[in-house]
């Protein structure tokens, strides 16, 4: 499939991402859709590696690197100051990993959502601390191997989209790199809105998940088609719209292509299937209303 997007050339080649990196792919379409009137905030993460190092930058916009806990607060500070300077039209986007969003950055994120800060917060979610060598985060799925959960994570992935929607912010969405048109549309939509906007983008991490270099997008699509990561958007925490849902493909097709799941028994795969089915049954009721 070939995509044609109207891109502003903000993201440059020559950055330090791994070959085939889906995070770099997502960043390209995020910042190129937001355009040059944007300031980005990144915490320590692969995103920081991809955007740096000083004095070089892979992005033709100001990028501020903050601490791991503070992305949402830092982005909010920039937006308030720009507004005070009469530059309210400038987009301020935070791009953080799942560690910096679900875990250590969550307090600042929840508070920014409660204050309805006029920022776009994008979580590039690769389901673990991949920049430090693949440790468990609260986004790591049930039974996935990481170096800090070598027998598989015993608890389920935190549902960040539902948590953010529960803040009743103007816009919450899920997206992934296998559906770039959907990602670009959601970023464009977020750009046109005001207030707190949150998009969680599932990013298959080739190294951290044990996926072949060319398979990132395929894995991403399977995550959606198996029902593990449905693509949807929520307005004001109430109006749910489904964009891409499960297509009846068993989760095994997704799990078996990743080294982080290779220890799974048949019973464990069945258990994951039941959990995914149950989650989908719960979520789909929200689209009906």
């Amino acid at each position: 499939m070939a995509y044609q997007f109207a891109e502003e050339k903000v993201f440059c080649s020559g950055h330090h991402a791994c070959p085939g990196c889906n995070a770099a792919l997502a960043i390209r379409y995020i910042v190129n859709t937001l355009g040059k009137d944007t300031v980005a905030v990144v915490p320590p993460s692969c995103i920081a590696i991809i955007s740096g190092p000083q004095p070089l930058s892979s992005m033709r916009i100001p990028v501020y690197q903050t601490t791991l806990e503070a992305s949402a607060a830092s982005a909010a500070g920039i937006k308030r100051a720009l507004k005070a300077r009469g530059k309210d039209h400038v987009n301020v986007v935070a791009m953080a990993g799942d560690g910096g969003t679900y875990d250590i950055g969550f307090q600042a994120l929840s508070s920014a959502a409660e204050r309805n800060e006029d920022i776009i917060y994008i979580c590039l979610d690769n389901e673990g601390y991949m920049n430090t060598g693949a440790q468990k985060s609260s986004s790591t799925p049930f039974m996935a191997y990481t170096t800090s959960t070598p027998s598989g994570k015993p608890t389920v992935k935190k549902n960040i989209a539902e948590i953010m929607a529960a803040h009743r912010i103007p816009y919450t969405a899920t997206a992934t790199t296998g559906y770039l048109d959907d990602l670009v549309r959601k970023v464009q939509r977020a750009k046109e809105m005001k207030g707190m906007r949150f998009i969680v983008v599932l990013i298959p991490c080739l190294d951290g998940w044990g996926v072949a270099d060319h398979e990132g997008a395929k894995i991403s699509r399977l995550a959606v088609q198996t029902g593990i990561f449905p693509l949807y958007e929520v307005e004001d925490g109430r109006k749910y719209t489904l964009n891409h849902g499960p297509q009846g493909i068993p989760v095994e097709a997704y799990l078996r292509r990743q080294k982080r799941y290779r220890h799974l028994t048949g019973e464990q795969i069945d258990e994951i299937q039941r959990m995914v089915d149950s989650d989908w049954e719960y979520l789909r009721t929200k689209f009906d209303s």
Binding site: Y64, A70, R80, A81, A84, Q107, A108, S110, R115
Partner: peptide, 26 residues
């Protein structure tokens, strides 16, 4: 003045830094 009612001192200082770097007195 724009008063930001933060959820912690850590976030308060984080926002102070970026607002200052974006060019206003903080």
């Amino acid at each position: 003045v724009d008063i930001m009612t933060m959820e912690s001192e850590h976030s308060a200082m984080a926002a102070c830094i970026t607002a200052s770097l974006a060019g206003v007195r903080v």
